[in-house]
Design a protein around this nucleic acid. Structure first.
Lengths: 178, 178
DNA sequence: GAGCCCATGTAAGATGTTACATGATTTA
DNA sequence: TAAATCATGTAACATCTTACATGGGCTC
């Protein structure tokens, strides 16, 4: 019953709460949803599926597609309990690793024109994220519920980045100095 | 001359561009500045300082405080060049790991009241970040330049999180459903 | 003189990504 | 029939954090 949670545990429990899935399905779904704020790789997913099954938190069933092997997992009652425990736990980690902001932080080393160019580069990066979000938007909307709420949050967040870059570039271009 | 850049390389080059510093100084400065979007630990900093010195990108000088050993590094011309190369490189990684959004994503598993409570928890987390930012604000402002620009960006970003949480909680409380 | 800060450093472990291996099925 | 996709899995690698060891100096 006592099981250590690692980075991928809640993702798997949560994804299986949304419905039975294979490891492959989980990976694909993650890449179109939580990927924007929480990634997961095969190297984490497959070993963890077996660990969680051994602990009785999920149950796997062979469900081949033709001759193609496939193992679909579903959440057990114990697994649902653990998901709820995690959702109710006070811990809320937050880690950001943003090379754009890091470059901007040291941009005084660059000639001013190039430094201001960073705003455009960063803006474009977040536009690309917005494009990606727009691609998955229809699925998020169709699904509804909290996943769609979070999708809207992502839009707001990256739109804010874009707006901030444009505002800052304009402001700093206007002044000779900041 | 050919040297691999790792996660801590640009931080060290950038910090030494801002002025000569010891490893300890770098760590302390990072924790009050880039930490918000780019962390660095002793386990990365000290080995990297030696590697960069061997490569001729930085130069260390013993500068003890009384009998207390201390080694202060400064950027060489080659180091400055590498910093500029990095600043001009097109790559801009971005990774977010936000347990708050992850919980929100799976919040349909919770009773509605508790799910809405997540907005308050997340909001408080970002208020705490804003408090931390406010603490270092005076130093950022005094320093000015791009570090201060980035500090303002951090404020905008986390204020946006706070505002979004409050807006969403109100909106979803108003509807019986979303 | 106890406890905290300065200062350097590393070992061990946790974590995560990448790339590949395998093999079946579907699509062009 | 070649290429893409489905599907599982792991080994090797890269990365990063934590905790500790060491020792001097400062403050109460």
């Amino acid at each position: 019953m006592m099981i250590e949670l690692n980075g991928v545990t809640p993702v798997i429990l949560g994804m299986l709460f949304l419905g039975p899935r294979s490891g492959y399905d989980i990976k694909r779904f993650v890449d179109n949803s939580t990927r924007f704020f929480w990634a997961a790789s095969y190297g984490q997913i497959y070993p963890e599926l077996r660990r969680l099954e051994q602990a009785g938190l999920i149950e796997g069933e062979s469900a081949p597609t033709g001759g193609r092997q496939r193992r679909v997992y579903r959440l057990t009652a114990a697994g649902k309990d653990l998901l709820l425990d995690w959702l109710r736990s006070p811990a809320l980690s937050y880690e950001l690793r943003d090379e754009g902001l890091l470059k901007l932080f040291f941009a005084d080393a660059l000639p001013r024109e190039e430094a201001l160019g960073l705003f455009r580069t960063i803006r474009d990066r977040h536009r690309a994220v917005l494009d990606r979000l727009a691609e998955v938007g229809p699925y998020a909307k169709e699904r509804g519920g909290f996943p769609y709420v979070v999708w809207q949050g992502g839009q707001a967040l990256h739109s804010q980045y874009v707006a901030w870059c444009e505002e800052m570039e304009n402001r700093l271009s206007a002044d000779g100095k900041e």
